[in-house]
């Protein structure tokens, strides 16, 4: 499998604080990678570096062998990286249908976008809410709307930052099924706190701790690793 995305020594320092501190990370085409780590490990910051929301203070990021380090976020999005953020980032004043349409209209004409939007709404079970303003939706529904928007342009790489946060058990189960289904056509990196969820979806897992990669291996091995258990229990460990 060819490498889709690779990060070399990516660092993001805020003043004296190193949120991401030299991360080497790569993901192959078609992979479904779990990214875990305790709060403050740098997962979301790393995602922001990958999507151009933050310009890394050091290191480089290659996507399909092209250097995207420090590129504008819209340009990175156009190259095929989509992100679902930790706190749903939505168009509150637009309806669900309009939101999905916006995601599609960048590259599709009105009629085709309308047809595709309808299909996506049905796929996500959102067709009943299509004309509802996004700002009026419940938290779980908002997560689905964001997923629908992110997936609509069919990005090659999808980053999901805590996709099940605030979801019910049933919604979480549906999300896991959806992620597996998406993996048939997309490469995914999923940040999650729910270990059972990670175990259910991912094959390989990368653990971040204090802005660095602590360990990267098969999910069962990683979760059994004493170093990983220690960081989740708040004990000090030395990175490998």
């Amino acid at each position: 499998m060819s490498v889709l995305l690779s990060a070399r020594g990516v660092a993001m320092h805020f003043g004296g604080v190193a949120a991401v501190d030299g991360v080497d990370f790569s993901v192959a085409e078609g992979e479904l990678r779990g990214l875990i780590g305790p709060n403050g490990a740098g997962k979301s910051t790393f995602f922001k570096c990958l999507t151009g929301q933050l310009r890394p203070t050091a290191g480089s990021i290659l996507f399909r062998d092209r250097n995207i380090t420090g590129m504008q976020r819209f340009a990175i999005a156009r190259m095929g990286i989509g992100i679902k953020t930790q706190v749903p980032s939505l168009f509150d004043g637009l309806t669900v249908r309009e939101s999905v349409m916006i995601a599609l209209r960048r590259f599709l004409a009105e009629r085709e976008a309308r047809r595709r939007a309808q299909a996506i709404l049905e796929r996500f079970g959102l067709d009943g809410l299509a004309e509802t303003e996004v700002g009026r939706l419940a938290h779980g529904q908002r997560q689905w709307v964001e997923l629908a928007m992110v997936i609509a342009p069919e990005p090659a790489l999808i980053l999901l930052d805590e996709p099940t946060a605030g979801m019910s058990a049933e919604e979480t189960r549906r999300t896991a099924a959806l992620i597996r289904e998406l993996n048939a056509r997309h490469t995914l990196i999923v940040v999650e706190h729910d270990m059972a969820f990670i175990r259910a979806i991912a094959h390989t897992v990368t653990v971040l701790h204090q802005g660095r990669v602590l360990v990267e291996d098969e999910v069962a091995k990683v979760l059994a690793d004493p170093r990983v258990q220690n960081v989740y229990l708040g004990r000090q460990v030395q990175p490998a």
Partner: peptide, 11 residues
């Protein structure tokens, strides 16, 4: 409504 989201969708 949300400039960041619009840019993350490629605008």
């Amino acid at each position: 409504e949300n400039e960041t989201r619009a840019e993350l969708l490629g605008y």
